[in-house]
């Protein structure tokens, strides 16, 4: 009998918990870790929504496609622009209905479904204490002596690797295969993902690594290490953007909308640079941290929309594969 009040108390407590709405956000693995942007965003959003934001991390798009309409996700954050066609065709996502005029991207962005929250550009990073005369252009990189050691990522397993292949295609068009055969002798090896390649670079196994224009910011701001620089090429750099989208089947549409709108706020955007180590998608440059304002950025930004990217992907990857298989 004595147990009854306890049981009743528990039931009240559970229903109180159940009343706090839960927003389930699917994100890539890096996002929700202690060193990623996730925790800060979660705290800031929970303070204004009176809800509980829960991340589910892992393979983002494959997991959503596997779950299909049954997914628990309300919002997906961290999708990459080069695979959004697959995401859009799945019909899993709903329009965000937001005004995009506050975006500060270097390219025009009109997408009504996929909302950018940060961006960067592909770039080769080098140690400026070791490589004293870095190639000043993509052409110069192709003509550089073969003892310049590069590490890149595989376009078949990594989004940054895929971006590089599209970058080369954008710069060299029909001559992409030729460009790859000039690059091939300098490419020490190809890795599965970004982490392996960047780890090899910081270990001194390569002179230059395929990464992002924003990579030096981490070393400058978090480590006070000024030795890492991005080589800026006048031919232009490929644009990489990360996106968020609302799930069409969300059972918390209002909360999901509120989160999507939160992405464009200054509070959200100002957390991006020093937690995601990339440029915020909707924040004027004068509000960036100083370390980011001083980063060299390319004047010309190259980008394929998702249809163009999807159409040329197989051919571009094949040009890469055959040149590097020689």
């Amino acid at each position: 009998m004595k147990a009854l009040p306890l049981v009743a108390g528990l039931m009240i407590a559970t229903s109180a918990v159940a009343e706090t709405p839960v927003l389930t956000v699917y994100a890539p693995d890096y996002f929700a870790s202690e060193w990623g942007p996730g925790p800060g965003i979660e705290a800031a959003f929970e303070a204004r929504c009176g809800c509980d934001l829960v991340y589910k991390t892992g393979e983002l798009l494959p997991r959503l496609l596997l779950e299909g309409a049954r997914t628990e996700a309300d919002v997906a954050i961290g999708l990459n622009s080069d695979i959004t066609k697959k995401a859009r065709d799945s019909g899993l996502f709903a329009p965000h209905g937001l005004d995009l005029s506050t975006l500060t991207l270097p390219v025009e962005w009109m997408d009504d479904t996929f909302l950018p929250f940060n961006y960067s550009h592909t770039a080769f990073i080098y140690d400026n204490t070791k490589v004293t005369e870095p190639p000043a252009s993509f052409d110069a990189l192709l003509e550089a002596p073969d003892d310049l050691r590069l590490v890149i990522q595989d376009p078949r397993s990594s989004v940054s690797g895929l971006a590089l292949v599209l970058w080369v295609n954008h710069v060299y068009g029909d001559k992409a295969a030729e460009a790859w055969s000039k690059l091939a002798p300098k490419i020490v090896t190809v890795t599965k993902g970004w982490s392996e390649a960047y780890g090899m670079f910081t270990d001194g196994e390569a002179d230059m690594v395929l990464s992002f224009t924003t990579s030096p910011a981490y070393h400058i701001m978090a480590e006070e290490d000024l030795s890492k620089s991005a080589a800026i090429f006048p031919e232009g750099h490929y644009f990489m953007v990360e996106l968020a989208a609302k799930l069409a089947g969300t059972d918390n549409p209002d909360l999901a909308d509120q989160f999507m709108a939160f992405i464009l706020t200054e509070e959200f955007q100002s957390m991006i640079p020093t937690s995601n180590w990339s440029f915020p998608a909707a924040l004027p440059k004068e509000k960036w941290p100083e370390g980011f304002q001083n980063l060299p950025v390319p004047e010309k930004v190259l980008f394929y929309n998702e249809d163009e990217a999807a159409a040329m992907r197989d051919e571009a990857v094949e040009a890469w594969r055959s040149a590097l298989s020689q």
Binding site: D29, S33, S195, Y198
Partner: peptide
Amino acid sequence: ITLFADGDNATLPLQIYRLMGSYQMEAA
């Protein structure tokens, strides 16, 4: 684990990949 893991049930190898993915090479 990469398909099943939530934010908060990572194993040590997964944690190493996460650290590397966030530039935390030394901690990794």
